[in-house]
Amino acid sequence: MDLRIFTEPQQGATYDTLLTVAKATEDLGFDAFFRSDHYLRMGSVDGLPGPTDAWITLAGLARETKRIRLGTLMTAGTFRLPGVLAIQVAQVDQMSGGRVELGLGAGWFEEEHKAYGIPFPKEKLARLEEQLEIVTGLWATELGKTYDFHGTYYDLTASPALPKPAQAKIPVLVGGHGATRTPRLAAKYADEFNMPFASIEDSERQFGRVRAAAEEAGRSGDDLTYSNALVVCVGRDEKEVARRAAAIGREADELKLNGLAGSPAEVVDKIGRYAEIGASRIYLQVLDLDDLDHLELISSQVQSQLS
C-alpha cells in the first residue's frame, strides 16, 4: 500500500510551509506529495495568508525535492485552458526529472470562481472530456508532427505539441462518485482512479463500475491503479487523537467513521480493509500542516506496518 501526503493549502499555508511538509514527506519515506487546486478557503478558517497556485507550487517543489512524486487532487478543469495546462505540467515534469502526476477534474466550487472572476460553465463534464483528450493527445504526439483537435469547446490547429514531458507518459488521475460518466472517463483516459472521502462499501461499488467500464472500453480493469483519499488523524492514545481532531475542527468519533483516525493499529486495520476491495494507494489528507510530529508518527507506526 502506497501512502501519499495530500494537502489543502487554500485553508491557510505559505509556500514555505508546503515546502517544509514536502521535505518531511520525502525524508519520512512517503511516496508522494499532492495538493488541492483551490483559490478560496472552505469553512470557518481564515485561510491566511491566502491561496497558492497549485502548479506554481509544484514547480518550486520540483526543484527542491529529489524522490517523491508530485501532483494534484484534482486540478480544476475550469482554471486553465487545456493547451496551457499541457505545457505547464510537461514543464514541471521536466523540472522534477519525471516525477509529476496530473489529477484532472471538472471543477466544482462555484464561490471561488465568483471570487476571482473565473467563468463557471454549466457543461463542466463535457468540457473535462475534451480537456483530457487534448492534454493526453498533445503529450502523445510524435516529435515533428502537429496536433489538431476540433471539439465543441476547444479548437486546436497545427499545434507543435511542445514541450514534451520527461516521462514517456505522465500518469493521469480521474476520480469521483459519478456512477456513469466518471467511470467511462477513467476507463478511457486514466492510469489511476481515485475515490475521494468515501466508505469502503461505496469505494468497492465505484471501483467495480470503473473496472466494468474499462472492460467495455477494451482495457483490463487491472490496468488502472485504484486509490482513496481520506482525512487522517492518528494518535498514540485517545487523548492525542482527540487533540489532533480538535485542531482541525473535527470530532474523533466522526473521523473514525469517515476517515482514517485512531491509534496506529486502528488505522492500519482500516487501511487493510480498503486494500481488500482493491485500493493500493491512500492519499492521507493532512489538514494541520504545522504538526510534523503527526507525519513522523504515521511514518514510524503506520507506514512501517504496510510495507
Rank of each mutant, 00 (worst) to 15 (best):
E111S: 14
E112K: 09
H113A: 10
K114D: 06
K114E: 09
Y116R: 12
G117C: 01
P119G: 07
P119V: 07
F120I: 12
F120Y: 15
K122F: 03
K122W: 01
E123H: 11
E123P: 05
E123V: 04
K124G: 13
A126L: 15
A126E: 15
E129I: 13
E130V: 04
Q131Y: 05
L132W: 05
E133P: 05
T136R: 14
G137R: 00
L138C: 11
W139K: 06
A140V: 13
G144I: 12
K145P: 04
F149L: 01
G151K: 02
G151W: 05
T152P: 02
T152V: 13
D155Y: 06
D155E: 09
D155S: 08
T157R: 14
T157K: 14
A158H: 13
S159E: 01
S159Y: 04
S159L: 02
P160Q: 01
P160G: 02
A161I: 11
L162V: 09
A166W: 08
A168L: 14
A168F: 11
A168Y: 07
A168S: 14
K169C: 15
K169G: 12
K169P: 10
K169I: 13
P171A: 08
P171T: 05
P171R: 05
P171G: 06
V172T: 14
V172D: 07
L173M: 10
L173H: 12
V174N: 02
G175S: 08
G175C: 12
G176R: 02
G178H: 02
G178D: 08
A179H: 12
T182C: 01
P183H: 04
L185V: 03
Y189W: 15
Y189Q: 13
Y189R: 14
D191G: 15
E192M: 15
N194V: 11
P196N: 06
A198C: 09
A198T: 07
S199W: 09
I200P: 11
E201Y: 01
D202W: 08
S203D: 06
S203N: 05
E204I: 01
E204K: 14
R205T: 06
A212S: 09
A212I: 03
A213H: 07
A214I: 00
E215Y: 00
E216M: 10
A217Y: 12
G218I: 11
D222R: 12
L224K: 06
L224N: 05
T225S: 14
Y226G: 02
Y226H: 01
N228T: 07
C233Q: 03
V234M: 14
G235M: 06
R236M: 13
D237C: 08
E238H: 02
E240M: 03
E240N: 03
A242V: 06
R244G: 00
A245N: 08
A246F: 08
I248S: 00
I248G: 00
I248W: 00
G249C: 04
E251M: 10
A252C: 04
D253H: 07
D253N: 10
E254S: 09
E254W: 07
